[in-house]
C-alpha cells in the first residue's frame, strides 16, 4: 500500500492507504475527523467539502493519494479554541443550520467564496452554492448567514 503524507488542519499526517481510498474516507476513518460528511455518491451534495491548498474541493471526489503533499483544512480546523470562525459564528447567529449534516460543507464552501469574492451579492451566494445541497433550511438562512459571514470576514 502506498504511503500518503499531507498536512491536515496544520498537523502533518502520514499513513499507508489503499490507492482507492477517497480523501473523505481518509479524513473520517484514518484521522477520525468525522465533521466532513458523505451525503451522496455522485459528487453533488457537497457535504464533504474541505479545502485543499486553500481551495474548496469535494473530498468524496478525490483520492487520498491525490492530496499527497497538500494542505488540507476541514471544519474541525476552523475555530480558534472556543472562538468560532466568523463564518461559523454567522451561521449560528442567523440560524443557518438545522440538522447540521450539510453544514460543514456549506461553511467550507462559503469561506472559499469569500476568499474568491470578498463582497458577494445574494445572487453570487445562491449561484456559488450550486454544489451544496441542504434539505432543511430552504437556503434562506444559509444565504443570510453567508452574506453576514462575508462581512464579518472583512471586518
Amino acid at each position: 500500500m502506498p504511503t500518503v503524507s499531507m498536512t491536515v488542519n496544520g498537523e502533518s499526517v502520514s499513513s499507508e492507504v489503499e490507492p482507492r481510498t477517497l480523501l473523505v474516507q481518509y479524513l473520517r476513518e484514518n484521522l477520525g475527523l468525522t465533521g466532513t460528511h458523505v451525503g451522496c455518491d455522485t459528487s453533488q451534495c457537497g457535504a464533504c467539502v474541505v479545502h485543499v491548498n486553500g481551495k474548496s474541493a469535494k473530498s468524496c471526489t478525490m483520492l487520498a493519494v491525490q492530496a499527497e503533499g497538500s494542505e488540507v483544512s476541514t471544519i474541525e480546523g476552523l475555530a480558534d479554541g472556543d472562538t468560532l470562525h466568523p463564518m461559523q459564528e454567522a451561521f449560528r447567529e442567523n440560524h443557518g443550520l438545522q440538522c447540521g449534516f450539510c453544514t460543514p460543507g456549506m461553511v467550507m464552501s462559503a469561506i472559499d467564496l469569500v476568499q474568491t469574492n470578498s463582497d458577494p451579492s445574494e445572487h453570487d451566494v445562491r449561484e456559488w452554492l450550486e454544489g451544496n445541497l441542504c434539505r432543511c433550511t430552504g437556503y434562506h438562512n444559509i444565504v443570510k448567514s453567508i452574506l453576514a459571514g462575508a462581512k464579518a470576514m472583512q471586518g
Partner: peptide
Amino acid sequence: KRVEDKRFLTGRGRY
C-alpha cells in the same frame, strides 16, 4: 440562538 449549533458548526456532531 440554538444551543445545539456549536457542535454541528465545529464538526463535532455525533451522527
